[in-house]
Design a binder for these strands. Structure first.
Lengths: 149, 149
DNA sequence: CATTTTAGTTCAGTGTACTGAAATATCGAG
DNA sequence: CTCGATATTTCAGTACACTGAACTAAAATG
């Protein structure tokens, strides 16, 4: 098993898991990426989110609707500018869905020695960087339409 | 960084990458899971694939159409039973899309010692198992509709 | 052979997420 | 206080994948 196959199996399993989560909660893959952004970068306004995920404002309303209905984000008017709507992740809600996974992963990780955990953490961090870079490349090249007949 | 966060960042990056690939090739997330199945389990008939990914035969025709158009699978009549259509992964085609990723991952993995690679491989395998198990759990529970008002 | 069963495609209908434009509400400048 | 600019929502129209049923072709059964 080399680096390639690592990725293949793992990424298939990850995608399948996300699909299951999405089906369970009634949110799309895009919604989940939006949630990850909100959770990661802190509260975002609808407009900021629209730019980040490259969607029209109208579509973002839909994203926010679904995430709010699933109990994953809160939608609050910005006290400083009441035109704005600030989306923030509901603390713990994300974790609640991923509770089973989080627990299982914690348990799994605990079975490795601290040095081993260090190696794994290092690999994951670097893998994430690689994925981000490759995603960026794909998106840029992807601006030429895929060749169809 | 503990086991939970491993998963979060990594899985977000994986999903984003898959979305980019899908957009580039004009295939859906489901199509990609189908491709992974075909590549992993060897050639499958349309009917077998339908059972595996829980889709109607009609939908599978669409999956096969898109994968074939993207040059990722071949569609050939089964010589032993000419009603059947066998879907097989086009060798290298998958790799061509994932070439950049594969190369980068190979390079990344090579930077670890054999023992470290062993640890990583072990962790990945177990993580895949955990993901599959959690996906299964979600899908089963998910048969109760998500609670909506 | 005739008949039934099985495999896959085609097609009409449905659901859903996206775009683009109009509507609503609030801010900031003069 | 008025007016133009900005943020979000609403809404009609569009695109697309899925279901279920009808259809075509080939195999198995008697």
């Amino acid at each position: 098993m080399d680096g390639r196959d690592f990725g293949r199996e793992l990424s298939t399993a990850v995608v399948a898991f996300h699909e299951a989560v999405g089906a369970r909660l009634g949110v799309t893959a895009v919604d989940q990426r939006a949630l990850a952004l909100i959770a990661g970068k802190g509260p975002l306004s609808a407009g900021e989110l629209a730019k980040e995920i490259n969607l029209t404002p109208g579509a973002v309303t839909g994203v926010a609707d679904r995430l709010e209905r699933a109990g994953l984000v809160r939608r609050e008017p910005d006290p400083g500018d009441r035109r704005r709507v600030v989306l923030s992740a509901v603390p713990g809600a994300f974790g609640q869905v991923f509770a089973g996974l989080g627990a299982a992963m914690g348990e799994l990780t605990a079975r490795y020695s601290p040095q081993e955990q260090q190696v794994i953490a290092d690999w994951v961090v670097r893998t994430v960087d690689v994925l981000k870079e490759q995603t960026r490349l794909l998106s840029e090249i992807g601006k030429n339409a895929p060749d169809r007949t």
